[in-house]
Each structure stands twice: as C-alpha cells, then as structure tokens.
Design a protein around this nucleic acid. Structure first.
Length: 431
RNA sequence: GGGGAGAUACCGAAGCGGUCAAACGGGGCAGACUGUAAAUCUGUUGGCUACGCCUUCGUAGGUUCGAAUCCUGCUCUCCCCA
C-alpha cells in the first residue's frame, strides 16, 4: 500500500493535486507541513498533520516540519474572522524548541537515513527578505486577482458574512506561505506541501508561484478538517485545548478525552490517529457494532494514542485512575488506597490547600468549597449544585448545605476529594 | 470629510420611564435515562450575611420620587456617500 492509498483508506485525504502519486512512485520525495508556533506545545489539532508526516516517512519519503515563525507573526486569514495577535521573536524561539521535542516522539530526526525528518523555521529566511525584494521577486509573479479569488480572502471581504475586514498584512499571508514553499523547493527540492483542507488556497498559491517563477512542478495534498459528529469543534474541552504537553493536559485527562469520543467519531478517529493496520481496524469496528456499550473502539483509540503521545505507564495509570473514578469505585475503595496511589490517581486534578486548623475545628461545607478553596466559584453555585444533587465528597453524595467538615472526612489524614457532578473532581489538601 | 445605525449578561437578541437581575434562543453547569456516548426530558445560569440586600444594560455626567429605557459630552463599532 503506497502513501496515497494508505491515507485514503484512513479518510485522511480531502484533495490531492493530480500527478502526485506518480511523483511519489518516481523518487523519494520531500514534503512539508506548516505548524504555527502560537504556543509552546502541540495540541491534538496538530496531530493530524503530524500523522501525515509520519505516514510519509514510513512510506520512505522525507518529511519536513516547518515552524511558522514568520507566518505566525502575520496570521492566517483562513478560517478566522478576526485578525490575529502578533508574536514576538523570543516567544517564537522558545515555542519552536518545545515543539521540536514533541515532534521527535513521532518523527525520526536523528537517523542518518536519507529520509530523516527535518525541522525548519521560516523566520530564518523570511527575516532576510527586504520589502522591495519581496514585492519584486515574489509579488510580481502573482496577480491580486488571483489572490482575491481565494476563498479565505473572499470570505473576509464579504460584508454579508459579518467578517471584520482584513488588513493588508493578512492579505499578504498567502504570498508569504507561498514563498516558504518556493524556498523549500529551491533549497531542499521539496515538492509537496500538506495541510488541512483550509490550507488548500495557501498551498496552491505556493505551487503556482513555483510554476511561474521556476517552471517547476510542486504538489498539494490536504486532509479533511477534523470535526465532531455533533458539529462542534474537535479538540476542545471545557478547559480549552487538549495539549500534548503533560504539564498542560495531564495524561489522565488526555486519555479521558479520547475515551469519551462518540461512536461515530471513534470510527473515523481510530483510522486517523492510530497506526493500526486496516484489518485490525475493520475487526475492531465490527466488534464495536456488536456490542457498542463495551466501547471497544474508544478503549483502543485511547490506549493507542495515550501510549504513543505519553507512555505505556501513563496509559496504565490513566486506566487505573479511571476505574477508581468511574468504575464501581466506592468510598471504601477510595479510603483503602495508599497515599502514593491516591495521589497518582488524582494527578492532574485541580488541587487546593487549606489550613489544618480549619478542618480540625470543623468548617461549613459551603465555606470550605467556595471560600477557603475555589472548587466552586460562588456560594450560590455550590448551593445550587447541592440542591440538584450534584455534589459528592469522597464519592458520597452530600445533600446538606449546613454540613460541617472535620477530621473524620480526611483520607490518608490529609486529603478531601470533592466532586461536582460525575466528572469534575477537585482535591483538597490539608496542610 | 458628509450622512445614518448601533453598543444589553458567556454569545446572539428583546426591552424604550416604574411590575427589570432584565423576555427568548444558543452555549455552560447539574439531575433523570445510559455505555464516562448520542438523543431526550427536567432544573439552573450576577453576588451576598438570601422571603431581604448589593453590583450590573459602552463610558462620564444630567433630568426625575424613580432610568437599561429621556437629555448631554466622550469612546468604540458598523453601514452608505465623497
């Protein structure tokens, strides 16, 4: 199975430029994907691009991860109705380093093989470009008519869509991205750019630029934007993005995110986000259909990705924690845990500290959760939750807002586990 | 530069002198049902020392017994014309 076929059955192809398959058969080809360094960690929205690069490398080709230091300073108008905030250079450099470390988990940057992965930053060549040079050597080759015809631009110019206009800076974005492609084409013989389907317009500006300026041929391949079956944005939780950095999103939460995937989505995700071969995937899907409630797909999906992004250990920890929190976990089980297990289970759960004296003297539950700690943002909210039967302490439902919390509630003599609803845990540490 | 429209809670959007902590929709949160799913139904969605009180309707003043609602200045946004 070649690269295109592989991506195809996985549902990872939205659009391909004709001739790419022949090109890939002909020789080892270099391709790149752009990543915005807007943060110092990748999030799972980036994962699709990373998977594409990985498949590409596995197929014997050479992947390049391009960190958009320059483009990140400009802001891509695609898919956004607002101007972007600009980043400064030191932030960009810091972010680039962090991103590379994460990418190294997936791509082979180190080997001596001719198709070892590379990382580049477009800031490095864009910074040397003078304005005059840019408009003469690049701008001259592309007409404004061509640029205006792009969807990403049209959307922003159409007052009906409610968009807030677009600055010249963002209008220029596609040229800058095109320049990247041209640069990589010339410097590294890079003939393919991949990305999300929203990038099609930007990528084709690049292939067009290469064709007009050098007469060479370059290709575009885009994957569908990942959407959830219910139409909401993929990769977001109440707390924002799901990050790969365990400091930002704990492995437990990461695992939970995938485990909570809906049936429809799981079927698509397991193809996209794991490297399981086609046969295995088909079997899993069948199994899942026979007994949906056992959530074979979600379990496997969460296992594969958590293991890949974090580690086997992290995965096992997350499973254990999940069993305690969601399984038949009871108050007794909770109290039986030894301290280190207990802490690892609740690693990544929001933590609050209160003074020992407060608990010893006994403290009203409302004061404890809304005032001494920020488990609840207001007393009113807490009262409402209690009225709605949504509060548990140490896995036991609490229905009395006048309850006094004292030493008898402590687990391992120093912890109290507060739970809002089914899924929101907070750990109170008494010190 | 000229003319017009507007700024209301997380978002959209009503309200146009008292009965407004502010309709309605979306979103959020919780409950029931479940598979830690989806759909559905129910409750809730400014704060507090809670049958009451306090702070909110762009911002600063003013009129009034009383203002989200009327007047004035300011800031910002959008539209049309040049």
């Amino acid at each position: 199975m070649n690269f295109i076929e592989e991506l195809n059955w996985r549902g990872m192809i939205h659009d391909v430029m004709p001739g790419l398959e022949e090109q890939l058969k002909k020789e080892m080809t270099t391709a790149y994907v752009g990543i915005d360094p807007t943060a110092d960690s990748l999030h799972i929205g980036h994962l699709v691009s990373v998977m594409m690069l990985k498949h590409f490398q596995v197929a014997g080709h050479k992947p390049i991860a391009l960190v958009g230091g320059a483009t990140g300073m400009i802001g891509d108008p695609s898919g956004k109705s607002q101007e972007r905030n600009l980043l400064d250079e030191s932030t960009l450099r810091h972010n680039q380093e962090c991103l590379k470390n994460q990418l190294a988990k997936f791509l082979d940057f180190e080997s001596n093989a001719s198709n070892a992965a590379e990382m580049v930053n477009n800031y490095d060549w864009m910074i040397k470009f003078g304005f005059l040079e840019f408009i003469r050597d690049i701008g001259k080759h592309i007409t404004v008519n061509y640029m205006m015809a792009k969807d990403s631009v049209k959307k922003r110019l159409d007052p009906e869509s409610g968009a807030a206009g677009m600055s010249f800076t963002e209008f220029t974005y596609q040229l800058v991205q095109g320049t990247d492609f041209l640069h990589l084409y010339e410097a590294k013989n890079c003939k393919l750019q991949m990305g999300g389907s929203d990038q099609w317009g930007n990528i084709t500006t690049g292939t067009e630029l290469i064709r007009r300026k050098t007469g060479g041929e370059a290709f575009a391949l885009t994957c569908p934007l990942i959407k959830k079956a219910d139409g909401t944005k993929f990769g977001k939780t109440e707390d924002g993005n799901v990050w790969l950095d365990p400091e930002r999103t704990s492995p437990y939460k990461f695992y939970q995110f995938w485990l909570n995937t809906s049936d429809e989505d799981a079927e698509r995700y397991i193809k996209i986000f794991t490297f399981l071969p086609k046969d295995d995937v088909s079997k899993l899907i069948e199994k899942h259909k026979e007994a949906p409630h056992t959530r074979v797909l979600q379990n496997k999906l969460a296992e594969e990705i958590t293991t890949m992004v974090h580690s086997r250990q992290d995965y096992e920890m997350a499973v254990e924690a999940s069993q305690i929190l969601f399984g038949s976990g009871t108050a007794e089980q909770l109290r039986k845990l030894n301290e280190s297990t207990f802490l690892s289970v609740f690693d990544g759960v929001p933590q609050f500290t209160v003074a020992k004296a407060d608990i010893e003297n006994g403290v009203n539950i409302v004061d404890l959760l809304a005032e001494k700690t920020a488990v609840f943002s207001s007393k009113g909210e807490l009262r409402r939750t209690i009225q709605g039967n949504g509060l548990s302490i140490n896995k036991e439902k609490m229905t009395n807002p006048d309850l006094i919390i004292d030493n008898s509630f402590l687990i391992s003599n120093k912890y109290i586990l507060a739970q809002k609803g089914k899924k929101n845990y907070s750990l109170i540490i008494v010190a």
